[in-house]
Amino acid sequence: MDNLAQLLKESWTLVDDHRDRLAGYFYARMFLSDPSLRTLFPVQMDGQRDRLLEAIVTAVQTIEDPEHFDGYLRSLGRDHRKYHVRPEHYEVMGVALLDALRSAAGQRWTIEYDQAWRDAYDAISARMQAGAATDTNPPYWDAEVLGHERRGPDVAVLTCRPLQHPLPYQAGQYVSIEVPRYQARLWRTYSIANAPREDNVLEFHVRAVGAGWVSSTLVRRVRVGDLLRLAAPMGSMTLDRTSTRDVLCVAGGVGLAPIKALAEEMAGWNRTRWMHVFVGAATRDDLYGLAELSALAAEHPWLSVIPVCGADPGFPGERGELADVCARYGPWTTHDCYVSGSVPLVRSVLRALAADDVPPEHIRYDAFGDV
């Protein structure tokens, strides 16, 4: 396994600077081999290309951790049921992926690299198919929007409820969302912002990002009564109830969503562990969810909430970069640490925790991109 991981990492460096070419060739080769596969994907493919590469990089990065590797890929297989992927599609995808890697790497590609990727893809596809085959849930859940509240020009808080079956998940996980009325076959991932509830209501925090097709639709077009589709839950940023360590949570922007869910879950059973939550934004107006967290902290003495503004000189609380403020309150060496937010934010907090000698196994995060 060590040699396989080394070959995968070495070969990936040959194509890492050519991701657009790699993704473009992969989809072109796949659709040429089986034109019917094109109907499974959205008309606009740019975002889909990014998600393919994220999945590949994550799989390569976790192959040295068998438990994480297996769990991630089984979850990914369950998630891909929403695309109506069948077992025979995996062979077509594997051929397309190998051809795309050879094309992007050029003459530096070797027989050893080729065999390593064949072996890796066999392992990846086997675990994804196993995850899909053993899943007894529906491919996705239809959910009705119950509430839609704007929290600023670009942020909305939505609540919805699955129509037929409850969606089983753990606090801290995320799901893919499709808005079939406006953006069919276009899925984007969003963290669930509340712990599981008896009424099966789910809350999501969404920021409209640039010209983002799904995020802009969820913030600006979706209304109460609209239907969403929710895919199977994924993510490992969940609480370890067997741990006795105190908890540190760091959230930037709408990264607050899974952190809020974790705090709500702890409120249901915790009596002995302290939870410190750092919430960062540019200005006080961007701290859209502070009121709910502060109300929860008022009910539970073990929960402390520290708001941080990076570009608001008149803010009465902590000011500066979120990672720097968090580091000043340390050390966090004996804590379970949870980090959520943009890729740059997560990267900066991980550096601060590493400098604080926090063991990597005590850190959990879900960033939708390379960290």
Results as ranks from 00 to 15, higher is better:
residue 215 S to R: 04
residue 171 A to I: 09
residue 166 P to F: 01
residue 187 W to K: 06
residue 243 S to F: 08
residue 192 I to P: 00
residue 255 G to P: 08
residue 201 V to Y: 04
residue 166 P to G: 08
residue 221 R to T: 15
residue 247 V to C: 08
residue 247 V to N: 00
residue 243 S to L: 07
residue 179 V to F: 10
residue 262 L to P: 05
residue 249 C to L: 15
residue 249 C to V: 13
residue 281 A to R: 04
residue 222 V to Y: 09
residue 196 P to E: 05
residue 162 P to D: 11
residue 218 L to K: 08
residue 279 V to W: 02
residue 280 G to H: 08
residue 278 F to D: 03
residue 151 R to L: 13
residue 271 R to W: 10
residue 226 D to K: 03
residue 149 E to P: 10
residue 289 G to A: 06
residue 183 Q to C: 13
residue 148 H to F: 00
residue 163 L to R: 08
residue 242 T to Y: 04
residue 187 W to I: 02
residue 195 A to N: 08
residue 164 Q to V: 01
residue 184 A to T: 12
residue 197 R to W: 14
residue 269 W to F: 15
residue 237 M to I: 08
residue 208 A to M: 07
residue 174 Y to W: 11
residue 287 L to R: 03
residue 192 I to D: 01
residue 174 Y to I: 04
residue 230 L to H: 05
residue 248 L to N: 00
residue 234 M to H: 13
residue 188 R to P: 08
residue 256 L to S: 11
residue 273 R to T: 07
residue 203 E to W: 02
residue 207 R to W: 10
residue 181 R to V: 00
residue 288 Y to N: 02
residue 211 A to K: 15
residue 211 A to P: 00
residue 195 A to M: 02
residue 192 I to T: 00
residue 201 V to D: 06
residue 212 G to A: 14
residue 264 E to S: 05
residue 222 V to M: 10
residue 164 Q to D: 14
residue 291 A to M: 00
residue 287 L to C: 10
residue 261 A to P: 06
residue 199 D to Y: 01
residue 280 G to T: 08
residue 188 R to H: 11
residue 177 I to F: 04
residue 282 A to Y: 13
residue 265 E to M: 12
residue 168 P to K: 06
residue 285 D to K: 14
residue 179 V to K: 03
residue 218 L to Y: 09
residue 175 V to T: 12
residue 166 P to N: 11
residue 200 N to I: 09
residue 283 T to I: 14
residue 242 T to W: 05
residue 267 A to D: 13
residue 250 V to M: 03
residue 148 H to I: 01
residue 205 H to C: 13
residue 218 L to P: 05
residue 211 A to Y: 11
residue 275 M to K: 01
residue 210 G to K: 15
residue 231 A to T: 09
residue 155 V to C: 09
residue 290 L to V: 07
residue 175 V to P: 02
residue 254 V to F: 03
residue 191 S to M: 08
residue 219 V to D: 13
residue 164 Q to M: 02
residue 230 L to Q: 02
residue 218 L to Q: 10
residue 161 R to M: 04
residue 259 I to L: 09
residue 258 P to W: 06
residue 187 W to A: 01
residue 150 R to F: 11
residue 211 A to V: 06
residue 173 Q to C: 09
residue 253 G to I: 02
residue 167 L to D: 09
residue 210 G to H: 15
residue 199 D to R: 00
residue 197 R to S: 15
residue 149 E to R: 14
residue 178 E to H: 01
residue 268 G to N: 09
residue 181 R to W: 03
residue 152 G to A: 04
residue 289 G to L: 04
residue 286 D to A: 15
residue 198 E to F: 06
residue 216 S to V: 01
residue 232 A to Q: 08
residue 263 A to E: 10
residue 234 M to T: 12
residue 177 I to H: 01
residue 271 R to G: 12
residue 148 H to W: 03
residue 174 Y to A: 06
residue 243 S to A: 10
residue 255 G to V: 06
residue 191 S to I: 06
residue 169 Y to K: 02
residue 210 G to I: 09
residue 194 N to Q: 11
residue 181 R to G: 12
residue 204 F to S: 04
residue 283 T to K: 06
residue 270 N to Q: 15
residue 277 V to I: 14
residue 228 L to N: 05
residue 170 Q to Y: 07
